[in-house]
Write a protein that binds this DNA or RNA. Structure first.
Length: 667
RNA sequence: GCCGCUGUAGCUCAGUGGUAGAGCGCACCCUUGGUAAGGGUGAGGUCGAGUGUUCAACUCACUCCAGCGGCACCA
């Protein structure tokens, strides 16, 4: 007699052999109707399976996040059934639930087309209408392998072969269709909400390994209700509107072109944003005790051999022969045996050269060496993506050389800086992760133990909660990952922090300790923004192009209503410029509506409208971006100059100007 | 790099086996208009590149290039 405990703490005895469905019915008919699966002590269980013993239970419906996963899993199954029905000879593989939906990988020689989606979706709806019960069976392992092999389902057979020997092999029937599956499933296909949609088609390697066959992956989204599906589709549209590539074109920030794929042409407006960011972070680093340096773009391949990059990452480096190209049309342009140089893919080896140039004492440490270093990486063509994945990038990079006993304090110092910077950008939703040792790595386990412990201690000291990302560290040391959530809930990684014991060793960096002996410094690789390219991409999408005033390419446009106000407009603009603002003047022979529209589309924070009245009164009609409909405030020019100059201050400068008093008052 | 899709004017996109169209933008003219598109005229295209099929290719086929969505990669 299983004793079942309900979420409210009450418990009740049920007859042996009772199923989840019967339990649900004993509570209420409507619950039984809505029930999808039952949770037993935290594990999900088919409603039609006997409950084996005492358990804390919860009936899962579509309204439950776990229920939504069941729905998505079941939709993946009926997708597979529909596809095999419509395209005989297609092999099924796996079809997991992912964020917002699911995918299914199929093996088929002919390519699928998105044109097939309508047909497949119709078939899926028919399977739901048929209301096939999902029926679980447990099979003997060899029988299952034979069965799927006989069906020509090589991938399924392989999956079973690779299951741990003690794992129960279960299959589920849904009407005429049968599939290997761990389950659980809802009682029948008829309970699946018709709130799904096939989204896209893509290639994916079998088991994620590029040496394996390429399968065809269908992505879909599925929800508990049609309204949820609609909402999701609208959200996708919203995200598309924020696409930094699109906004970059609309706001004339930058462009990319085939002759320099992966490298950005920054236009004046876009580079204005860059300059603000660079000036900002430079102030922050100066304040935090960094020394800025500049190191060579090209270094001899020998340097990269010594650093270890040549053997491991040569395929991602741009290599240049160290030879004068020949003007002779007949012969080769460069000698075949020319020495090789490489464009730097990172700044750290060069920074070690500065460290090594002269004798260093323990008194010099920590040495925080910063560089806005322009690096090149020969990223594969398929990886390039707007500003987010480029071949030429500039990092707000720095390397901190320190003693082992300084690692925790330096890490904490960086974490404080990091949080403060992102706070200035109004991005306070940050998840921290400690990425630990990967399978292939340099350095011994004792060193890794110490390194991971140091980072954990620093996170604790900074009062930060964090998760582990096991095996995600760099090959030379553990990393901290910073996952930011943007205005519409997407997560991004920009900055980085890595602990490195290996490179100082390889490039023989040392300092003289208090004991008069030579010691190895520890090296901390760190970047707050990451790369300017990626960070600007992130900012564009986070703000949907509407930058805060201090970053906006143009901060205020003075737009005239009639040409009688032209002279005054120029005077007002000059005043604003003198106050340090980025000002444009629009004297065109256009209606004010048209001017407002155009500058609003460019997301200029302020439009200062001047007509005859403003010109006579020495005023401006100020219109702030982002407020729907007519919004204006007539203000004396002098007041506007003062107020906008204040609003346009970078956050750190404003903080310094007003001291900590305002900050404290704000808390 | 792999799989799929796409490539037509500065931008967004129609279009057909018989050598191209719209809207916006741009230029010029009229309009001086009070908070998200005033009107007119005009310029602008080797239809991504190459090869092939055809009397004829922007259209069909193949190859290449690039972009997009994934996968793999990401020091």
């Amino acid at each position: 007699m299983p004793k079942l405990t309900f979420p409210d703490g009450a418990s009740r005895d049920y007859p042996a052999g009772v199923t989840g469905l019967e339990v649900a019915e004993s509570i209420s008919k409507s619950l039984a109707k809505k029930a999808l699966v039952i949770e037993l002590d935290g594990a999900l269980w088919d409603l039609k399976r006997e409950i084996p013993g005492d358990a804390a239970i919860r009936i899962i419906t579509a309204a439950d996040p776990a229920g939504l996963e069941i729905i998505r899993h079941d939709v993946a199954h009926i997708l597979a059934q529909a596809v095999q029905d419509l395209f005989p000879g297609t092999q099924v593989t796996i079809g997991p639930v992912i964020e917002n939906g699911f995918y299914y990988d199929f093996a088929r020689d002919e390519p699928f087309s998105t044109d097939d989606f309508a047909k497949i979706e119709a078939k899926m709806a028919a399977i739901i209408d048929a209301d096939h019960p999902f029926e679980r069976e447990e099979w003997e392992r060899e029988k299952a392998i034979m069965f799927f092999r006989d069906m020509g389902e090589e991938y399924k057979a392989q999956i079973i072969e690779d299951l741990p020997v003690d794992e129960v092999v279960s299959v589920y029937r849904q009407g005429p269709w049968i599939d290997l599956c761990r389950g659980p499933h809802m009682p029948s296909t008829g309970k699946i909400p018709k709130a799904f949609k096939l989204m896209k088609l893509a290639g994916a390697y079998w088991r994620g390994d590029h040496r394996n066959a390429m399968l065809q992956r269908m992505y879909g989204t599925a929800w508990a209700t049609k309204a949820d599906l609609e909402k999701h589709l609208v959200q996708i549209e919203e995200a598309e509107k924020r696409d930094h590539r699109k906004i970059g074109r609309q706001m004339d920030l930058f462009h990319l072109q085939p002759e320099a794929q992966g490298s950005v042409f920054w236009h004046p407006a876009g580079f204005t944003v860059w300059r603000q960011l660079e000036a900002y972070i430079r102030r922050r680093l100066d304040e935090d005790g960094y020394d800025e340096v500049k190191t060579p773009q090209l270094m001899d391949s020998g340097m990269w051999e010594r650093s270890g990059h040549w053997s491991k990452f040569r395929d991602g480096m741009f290599v240049v022969p160290d030879d004068i190209p020949s003007l002779d049309d007949d012969g080769p342009i460069v000698r075949a045996d020319a020495d090789l140089l490489a464009l730097k893919p990172m700044n750290c080896p060069a920074h070690i050269q500065i460290f090594n140039n002269g004798q260093r004492s323990y008194r010099d440490l920590p040495w925080r060496m910063a560089e806005f270093g322009c690096c090149h990486r020969n990223e594969s063509h398929g990886a390039l993506h707007g500003l987010l994945r480029v071949r030429q990038m500039t990092q707000d990079d720095a390397h901190i050389f320190c003693r082992e006993d300084q690692v925790v304090a330096e890490t904490k110092k960086f974490l404080d800086l990091f949080a403060s910077v992102y706070d200035d950008f109004n991005m306070t939703d940050i998840d921290y992760k400690l990425a630990t040792r990967p399978e292939t790595r340099a350095g011994d386990d004792a060193t890794w133990d110490r390194a991971e412990k140091n980072l954990a201690a620093a996170l604790d000291a900074a009062g930060l909660k964090y998760d582990l990302a096991a095996g995600e560290g760099a090959f030379y040391g553990p990393k901290l990952e910073f996952h930011l959530t943007d205005a519409i809930g997407r997560t991004w990684q920009a900055g980085t922090f890595q602990l490195d014991y290996v490179l100082p060793e390889r490039l023989d960096a040392s300092y003289v300790g208090a004991d008069g002996e030579k010691h190895r410094p520890v090296m901390l690789h760190r970047a707050v923004f990451g790369t300017f390219e990626r960070f600007i991409g992130l900012l564009i999408e986070h703000h949907a192009g509407a930058f805060p005033t201090w970053l906006a390419p143009t901060q205020v446009v003075v737009a005239t209503i009639t040409s009688d106000a032209d002279d005054y407009a120029e005077t007002a603009a000059a005043r604003l410029r003198d106050a340090g603002l980025r000002v444009a003047v629009d004297l065109r022979n256009e209606k004010i509506n048209y001017k407002i529209r155009e500058h609003s589309e460019r997301k200029v924070p302020w439009i200062a409208v001047v007509g005859r009245q403003e010109a006579e009164n020495g005023a401006l009609a100020m219109r702030r971006f982002g407020i729907e409909g007519r919004n204006q405030e007539i203000k004396p020019l002098n007041d506007v100059v003062t107020e906008l100059a204040e609003e346009a201050l970078p956050p750190d400068v404003r903080r310094a100007k007003h001291g900590d008093a305002t900050a404290a008052a704000a808390e």
